[in-house]
Design a protein around this nucleic acid. Structure first.
Length: 401
DNA sequence: TCTGGGGTCCTAGGACCC
DNA sequence: TCTGGGGTCCTAGGACCC
């Protein structure tokens, strides 16, 4: 067995939306900027120096930082920047696991001969992202995903931090438990009640005590993380597991035509996105948030996967009817709709290939089917894709990419 | 801190089946 | 008629992440 080495990279764009705005508008550079006026979606490091944070209300942010500049979100610019950065990730290593629009894990094992050590790859990646996309990227390099994630956070802004295997404990133990990936405010509070403040404190406690306080999975999980055990591999090629949309409502919203219109708009948005992505789901989830900010969800699982507006809307309306007493009693402040259980049933698409296609066309068609169906093969002049059923996709439709 | 929009994973209980 | 162990699927809720 080779000795353990720091081969996992966690790459994370700094203040992503705000950095894109500063890149594209010279007036914003070096100044406190937030994206999003109502609620802060991203804050530049200049704004963070004033205590401005993402998810903060815009009014509070402006109170903290009088000269704050507010940019309206430009989603297409962020998507484009993200694509360019992920292209560089995939150029750098073969296995990339996206975590969100602005961060990913990269597996840098076994690339010494062709691309250099993990640290060299990380340094080159930071330079390439800066030069070709114009954005600051922080990278953490460590033996496990969890350590790499914590390392990239410690490296920010615009930094590179390597945690070598023999330095892990010295790096991790002084940190607040909230720095661990997976320890949020609630777990942190429960741990504080046990007198646990740092990762070192956490590592000193027996697993049974943590399981008793947090539950089986979370207890075992934080115990393992504190002892730097994290066997999760970097997984490439992961697909989205749900598609949803939501909208905030004026306080005290009740069931009625207005709410139904909102619901229909959400269904429309979600099913469009599903169809564009070539996906279908079996479970429709109605999400509700009430006047007191408590939440509830109601769901229905359909016999077949669908991305059809009418199917999803019918299910959503049935759920809404079911929840109407609850809504009228407690008042609604948010309604959301999610389609999940994506591609849950097996199906098969068969395409006749008449007239002996040339090799390039055949390979393009295979790629198209494989993208949508998971597998693709040619059997006696017929192109077969096996995988998730997608009933609205007719044979022969949308084969070109 | 009174609150936006998008996701992930885990757990528990009940229905149902063999 | 009563009883057992084991499994899957579905619903609802909770915690966490960006």
């Amino acid at each position: 067995m080779p000795p353990p080495a720091a081969t996992v990279l966690h790459a994370d764009l700094d203040a992503f939306f705000a950095s894109v705005e500063q890149r594209d508008d010279p007036h914003l550079r070096g100044r406190p900027v937030v994206v999003g006026g109502g609620v802060v979606l991203a804050a530049s490091y200049e704004a963070r120096a004033y205590g401005v944070r993402s998810a903060m209300g815009g009014r509070r942010a402006r109170a903290l930082c009088p000269g704050l500049l507010v940019a309206e979100p430009r989603w297409s610019a962020y998507v484009e920047a993200s694509r360019a950065v992920f292209d560089l990730f995939r150029d750098a290593v073969p296995v990339v696991e996206a975590l969100s629009i602005d961060e990913a894990f990269l597996d840098a094992r076994g690339l010494e001969r062709i691309a250099g050590t993990p640290v060299q790859i990380a340094a080159r990646l930071r330079r390439d992202v800066r030069e070709r996309v114009g954005l600051p990227l922080s990278v953490g390099v460590a033996r496990t995903k969890s350590l790499a994630k914590v390392a990239s956070a410690a490296a920010k802004p615009d930094g590179l931090l390597v945690v070598e295997p023999d330095a892990e404990e010295a790096f991790l133990h002084p940190l607040d438990v909230g720095a661990l990936w997976g320890v949020g405010p609630i777990t942190r509070r429960k741990l504080a009640a046990l007198g646990i403040g740092t990762v070192g404190d956490l590592a000193a406690r027996p697993e049974e005590e943590l399981v008793a306080a947090l539950g089986r999975a979370p207890g075992r999980h934080v115990h393992a993380l504190a002892h730097r055990r994290d066997p999760r591999p970097v997984r490439g090629g992961r697909r989205r597991r749900s598609v949803g949309a939501q909208c905030a409502l004026p306080r005290g919203t009740r069931a009625g035509p207005d709410l139904d219109t909102r619901l229909a708009a959400l269904v429309d948005r979600v099913t469009r996105r599903l169809r564009r992505a070539g996906r279908a789901g079996r479970t429709v989830v109605l999400r509700l948030r009430f006047d007191d900010y408590t939440r509830a969800a109601r769901s229905r699982t359909l016999p077949e996967p669908t991305a059809g507006t009418a199917d999803v809307l019918a299910a959503a309306r049935a759920l809404l009817r079911e929840a109407t007493p609850l809504i009228d009693h407690r008042g609604l402040t948010l309604v959301g709709l999610t389609v999940t259980n994506l591609d849950a049933a097996a199906g098969q698409l068969t395409l006749p290939l008449d007239g002996g296609p040339d090799r390039a066309a055949l390979e393009a068609a295979l790629d198209g089917v494989r993208d949508r169906y998971g597998t693709a093969a040619v059997t006696r002049g017929t192109l077969v894709g096996t995988g998730p059923a997608q009933p609205w996709l007719q044979p022969g439709e949308e084969l070109e990419r």
